[in-house]
Simulated scan of single mutants.
Amino acid sequence: MPRCWQGNRTNDFACAPTLASFDPSTISQRESTMPWIRIDLSEGRTVEQKQKTAEAVTRALVEHCGCTPETVSIVFNDVSDDNWAFGGKLLSQRGKP
Score class of each variant (00 low, 15 high):
49 Q>V: 01
75 V>M: 13
2 P>V: 10
60 A>S: 15
17 P>E: 15
91 L>Y: 05
51 Q>T: 14
63 E>L: 06
93 Q>V: 07
76 F>W: 07
81 D>H: 13
22 F>S: 04
85 A>V: 05
12 D>I: 15
78 D>N: 11
11 N>A: 15
18 T>S: 09
8 N>D: 15
5 W>F: 04
8 N>M: 06
9 R>G: 10
94 R>I: 12
54 A>K: 00
66 G>Y: 07
27 I>N: 04
47 V>I: 07
77 N>E: 03
49 Q>T: 07
5 W>K: 06
32 S>E: 12
24 P>W: 00
45 R>Q: 01
16 A>L: 11
10 T>G: 09
36 W>Y: 07
90 L>Q: 03
29 Q>C: 13
59 R>V: 06
29 Q>L: 15
73 S>N: 07
8 N>P: 14
73 S>V: 15
39 I>D: 00
93 Q>L: 11
15 C>E: 09
21 S>L: 08
84 W>F: 04
46 T>F: 03
92 S>M: 10
11 N>M: 12
83 N>Q: 06
28 S>R: 03
86 F>C: 09
21 S>H: 11
44 G>H: 02
60 A>V: 10
76 F>P: 02
57 V>W: 02
4 C>T: 14
88 G>A: 02
8 N>A: 07
24 P>C: 03
15 C>I: 03
97 P>G: 13
21 S>C: 14
94 R>T: 10
97 P>C: 12
16 A>C: 15
28 S>M: 00
28 S>W: 02
95 G>K: 00
59 R>I: 00
6 Q>L: 11
63 E>D: 10
56 A>I: 11
2 P>A: 13
60 A>E: 11
93 Q>H: 09
32 S>L: 10
24 P>Q: 11
49 Q>M: 12
18 T>E: 05
89 K>Q: 15
83 N>P: 02
10 T>Q: 12
35 P>H: 10
5 W>C: 14
42 S>V: 13
91 L>H: 14
30 R>W: 03
40 D>T: 07
26 T>I: 14
15 C>N: 08
15 C>Y: 03
41 L>V: 13
11 N>G: 03
88 G>N: 04
45 R>E: 01
9 R>A: 15
42 S>K: 11
34 M>P: 02
96 K>N: 11
46 T>E: 02
35 P>L: 15
42 S>N: 00
11 N>K: 12
95 G>V: 09
58 T>A: 00
19 L>P: 00
41 L>H: 05
5 W>P: 05
56 A>L: 04
39 I>G: 01
2 P>F: 07
93 Q>K: 01
53 T>P: 00
93 Q>A: 15
5 W>D: 01
51 Q>S: 14
75 V>K: 05
95 G>H: 02
90 L>M: 10
22 F>Y: 14
72 V>S: 05
88 G>L: 09
2 P>D: 10
58 T>N: 05
51 Q>F: 08
78 D>F: 00
28 S>Q: 09
24 P>Y: 01
7 G>H: 03
31 E>R: 00
7 G>K: 01
